[in-house]
Design a protein around this nucleic acid. Structure first.
Length: 290
DNA sequence: AGGCAGGTGGCCA
DNA sequence: TGGCCACCTGCC
């Protein structure tokens, strides 16, 4: 597999090493790994694969298998939303009156939200219930390894499509170590198989309707729905409340005894239309402090 | 060895 | 509505 030369990917908002690591490996995507031999990150999304690294001037460089060019380069720019000015968006968050948020933004300046394919984002987060990030990554790897298609001959494997998952037995899924998540994935796959355009439809619904529609899938609750919409459908008002954010809102915002739905509303109201971006900053900081 | 982990859904008052 | 708990599996 021949790779292109390293090529700059101009970004409206530059990365730092910390922000790049947190973006690729902080839990919004599960298919990036740091290759020690190559000293770079390799990621797989959809039917694409790419390697990226920050050079000494903190410019993002990428290389892609020649066979996937030139489409993959365009797909990579879209995946990173290279034209989006995240610095400007961060400036619109209420950091001036919110010390916690200000500190998180300072610590992870340059953090981005990736633009991932919606179907596989949903799959990743269906694997995530009561799992830590390394375990979720492992499950995704096993799914791709045993059920995914080769992106290039002998090369990396894509995550399985929902169609493929619908053709797979729950027992086969369980054998991958998915545990009780296997049943949810299987049933969700069956539902999608009966209505193949459903995910495309949901992806283009207004946030609240999309969220409600996702709850119909077994294993998809409010948190998983918000993650799928935030990381896979560019719905930045989604504010996933997981155990980490729960801790942040309790300990640092004093919101003890609040219900989960109340905290979700608080997030969207307090942080505004980019609440999910604020969430990602707070999530990163809280995890690093623990 | 037992409890816990980027949750969800079912059951019971 | 609100609280409790089972659910797979691996890791500390």
């Amino acid at each position: 597999m021949g790779w292109t030369d390293w090529t700059p990917l101009p970004l409206a908002t530059p990365f730092t090493q910390e922000a790049l690591r947190e973006t690729l490996d902080g839990g919004q995507a599960f298919r990036w790994q740091f290759l020690e031999m190559e000293s770079c990150w390799q990621g797989i999304w959809g039917r694409f694969v790419a390697r990226v690294v920050l050079d000494q001037d903190e410019r993002l460089l990428y290389r892609i298998p020649e066979e996937l060019m030139p489409q993959a380069a365009e797909a990579l720019k879209n995946y990173f939303l290279s034209d989006t000015n995240w610095g400007k968006i961060a400036d619109r968050l209420p950091w001036r009156s919110d010390r916690e948020l200000a500190q998180a933004i300072e610590a992870y300046s340059g953090l981005r939200l990736l633009n991932q394919p919606f179907p596989e984002t949903l799959l990743g987060f269906l694997c995530s219930a009561t799992k830590q990030i390394p375990q979720i990554k492992l499950l995704c790897h096993k799914l791709a390894d045993s059920l995914g298609e080769e992106i290039l001959p002998g090369g990396p494997l894509a995550l399985p499509t929902w169609e493929k998952l619908a053709q797979t037995s729950e027992a086969s899924l369980r054998s991958l170590g998915l545990g009780f998540r296997a049943k949810n994935i299987k049933k969700t796959a069956d539902a999608i198989a009966k209505d193949p355009a459903v995910l495309l439809r949901i992806e283009h619904l207004p946030y609240h309707e999309a969220h409600a529609a996702l709850l119909d899938f077994p294993g998809v609750g409010s948190k998983v729905a918000d993650c799928a919409l935030l990381f896979g459908a560019r719905m930045y008002e989604a504010f996933p409340v997981d155990t980490w954010i729960l801790k942040v809102l309790e300990k640092r915002y004093g919101l003890n005894d609040w219900k989960k739905v109340q905290l979700e509303s608080f997030g969207r109201i307090h942080f505004g239309p980019y609440a999910g971006y604020a969430q990602q900053y707070l999530f990163a900081r809280e995890r690093s402090l623990s």
